[in-house]
Simulated scan of single mutants.
Amino acid sequence: MSKYPSVKQIVVGLNAIVVQVVIVVLISGCESRKSESQQATVETETKDTITTPQKPTPVSQPLVSHMYTADPSAHVFEGKIYIYPSHDIEAGIPQNDNGDHFAMRDYHVLSMDSVGGKVTDHGVALDVKDVPWAGRQMWAPDAAYANNQYYLYFPVKDKQNIFRIGVATSTSPSGPFKAEKEPIKGSYSIDPAVFKDTDGSFYMYFGGIWGGQLQRWQTGKYDSTAAQEPADGMPLGAKVARLNKNMLQFAEPVKEIQIVDSTGKSLSAKDHDRRFFEAAWVHKYNNKYYFSYSTGDTHYIAYATGDSPYGPFTYKGVILNPVEGWTNHHSIVEYKEKWYLFYHDTQLSGQTHLRNIKVTELTHQQDGSIATVNAYIQ
């Protein structure tokens, strides 16, 4: 017998090999399609289970979007609403609890004839370079009208990095304003808010802890080593002083505002949901003084009422629940027989230091309480 296979044997062998190859290919194809099908199913299941977080729907829109604005102090002057906000910028400074990244350098004045109507930007009203004693960080301002002129009150760090409160004047509510050569004697910290009482007297409320440096003045002298706020016991209250008739200086020593609970006991420094942090504002309704403020790290705008512009003020509740962004700062004004709350959030940028101001209606209820505002539709 030949050791070599016959032609017939070769053909049969080749046929067997082809059949095996075909079977392998078919099996591989099936497995591949099965794998692809399983992968597609997994991907579909994954896509079905991933949801994109929805941003809350705001109850009001930014008043301006061509620049970032915050801390709106609103007043009715010459039949219009004038708003004196901070002007946020991106300065490229890392964020910290001292607020160094809030590096604002000027103020713009805004106005509108009606809520919901056109908002006019009147341009730069005051620049930090035009304040002789100023160093940096022009934070939340306020304004007042007396003696046939307008006054812009503003906090800014001096050349030693200590916050002082300055004043500038103008014959127009929109400015430009000219700053006095020195800050108000005896002033310190941030967030000046000027309230005109029904007897014509003007009072300035001010102060803010942490970056606002109020805690550094507990002894009456500036102490750069002071903790951000008291660990326990009595909290640090906002400050108040009546202004001179010339509106350029304090007429009396600075006093501290006391906020108490319904039993008359002072709020604890640990009571972060109710204690004062910054952003004081005062308005009067039915002969009651309403002292409102920010609780800071718990993000509420709260309020308390009293029978004197000096207090004490009894805590009543929350005006505005937390908004997007770390800080909040408000003002309250009556215009054409309605009350409005001005505030800010971070709708435009999503960044804490680049904010936008807003407005919504405020309601005083029959018992004098204020209906809590939710800035977003629940």
Rank of each mutant, 00 (worst) to 15 (best):
Y153W: 06
Y153G: 01
Y153N: 01
K159R: 13
K159G: 13
I162L: 14
F163Q: 07
R164E: 11
I165W: 01
I165M: 03
V167N: 00
A168I: 04
A168N: 02
T169H: 13
S172Y: 11
S172K: 12
S174C: 05
S174V: 03
P176H: 00
F177Q: 00
K178Y: 07
K178S: 14
A179W: 00
K181V: 02
E182H: 11
S187L: 09
V194P: 02
F195C: 06
F195K: 02
F195S: 03
K196H: 10
D197L: 03
D197I: 02
Y203K: 05
Y205K: 02
F206Q: 00
G211L: 02
W217I: 01
Q218H: 11
T219P: 04
T219R: 04
Y222P: 12
D223R: 02
S224L: 10
E229I: 15
D232V: 10
D232E: 11
M234C: 06
P235D: 12
G237K: 05
A238P: 05
K239A: 11
A241D: 12
A241K: 08
R242W: 09
R242P: 04
L243Y: 08
N244Y: 07
N244G: 07
K245R: 13
F250P: 00
P253A: 06
V254T: 15
V254S: 08
V254N: 05
D261H: 12
S262I: 09
S262C: 08
L267K: 01
S268H: 04
S268E: 06
H272Y: 08
E278H: 13
A279T: 12
W281M: 13
K284V: 11
